[in-house]
Design a protein around this nucleic acid. Structure first.
Lengths: 212, 212
DNA sequence: TAGATTGTTAATCGATTAACAATC
DNA sequence: TAGATTGTTAATCGATTAACAATC
């Protein structure tokens, strides 16, 4: 299989979301043209993107919604369960723990970890908040696959390094820093403040335009 | 001014973050080469990006860290305050409200809104949680600029529409849907589940590679 | 002045769009 | 079969990298 570009991969979850909606509405088939109009992209792009992974459609017919949904789900790794723990049980960590849809998609959030003694021992909807001291043993014993880092940037790097030593290979990083991690480790960043700055860039760009 | 590409804009906050670190370490100057090594990008890209906005550097010297930091801050609109309210006072909404760094960067989170009577009247670190019924009057009276939507997708669209009618022109959207909004409105999306799916894509891609 | 490093043009690379033959 | 729509090649567009003259 040749290398799929990042741009293509980042569009897959959005296709998946729209197909889920169509599926929920009991719509059976969709053409790239129809989908393109819903999603505000070109039909050509949709067909190109999908054909990176094989022919999911049928000439003269289009795409079967359920089938395409399932296939993209497989590409996104949603056909296998994923064990995840959350490090940092503040509001953000708890928000992720409580988001019900993750459960439906095969994400098993088995525990949260924090150093705050007031939190340790309490429970979110499904998972317990444990002492961060127990983190390293826990991930080893429970074959955790993904660690979500929802804590300040200072401890994040060090904890991530230790987790790599424990065999963790995938991080969902909300800390406001780039993890400097060597080796074959997957890091997906969510930098909320950077997202907000993109928004204010556009606000001030618009203001400057209007003033001219 | 010619149109700046989205790719360039999305890199500005990251430059800003690295310059902030250098500044904190009292480092006065930096060359594109040094910065490129820190950030894992090409020096050429840094110079190209910055020269979209004018010459911030000096031949033979490089860039003055504080000056470049300030200039990028201005580009990102961080030299003016931004009034923001949060709709949806669940964990995610509260996480944003409590994130202290926003305050430092000129973001004024003046209120949160929710329909849950148990939350209404309580306070986060700085802002009060109010009845969502009061939202529309509030944004009009207080000249709110940005609305963060941290609520389920079903109510998000309708509320966004009403807010547009109240004059809101910028949304920070965490709801798992694309707001279908007409007109000259800025929407910055943060789709957490899509980010997580990108992560699992890479996990399963890696697994497939190793199996071959 | 000599050395360093920017600003900027040109070359390359990659991604998107258009077009159309293949085929259901 | 005729019509529709994909899969795929070719053309275009845009973004990144390389190169180097300008200049501090």
């Amino acid at each position: 299989m040749n290398k799929i570009s990042k741009a293509v991969i980042s569009r897959l979850p959005r296709y998946y979301r729209y197909l889920d909606e169509l599926r929920t509405q009991k719509i059976e088939r969709v053409s790239s043209k129809e989908l393109s109009e819903m999603m505000n992209v070109t039909a050509s792009q949709i067909r190109q993107d999908l054909n990176n992974f094989g022919g999911f459609g049928q000439q003269g017919y289009g795409y079967n919604v359920q089938y395409l949904y399932d296939e993209i789900g497989k590409l996104l790794g949603l056909d296998t369960p994923h064990k995840m723990v959350i490090v940092g049980a503040g509001n953000l960590g708890q928000a992720i723990a409580n988001y019900g849809n993750f459960k439906n998609r095969g994400f098993q959030i088995t525990a949260l970890f924090d150093k705050n003694p007031n939190l340790i021992g309490t429970k979110t909807s499904d998972a317990e908040i444990m002492d961060i001291e127990c983190l390293y043993d826990y991930v080893k014993e429970n074959q955790v696959e993904i660690v979500a880092l929802t804590l300040p940037k200072e401890p994040a790097r060090e904890i991530a390094e230790k987790l790599v030593a424990c065999g963790i290979k995938a991080f969902w990083n909300f800390a406001h820093t780039d993890l400097k991690i060597s080796g074959d480790i997957i890091v997906e960043n969510v930098h909320l403040s950077e997202s907000l700055m993109k928004l204010t860039y556009r606000i001030s760009e618009k203001r400057n335009h209007n003033e001219e």
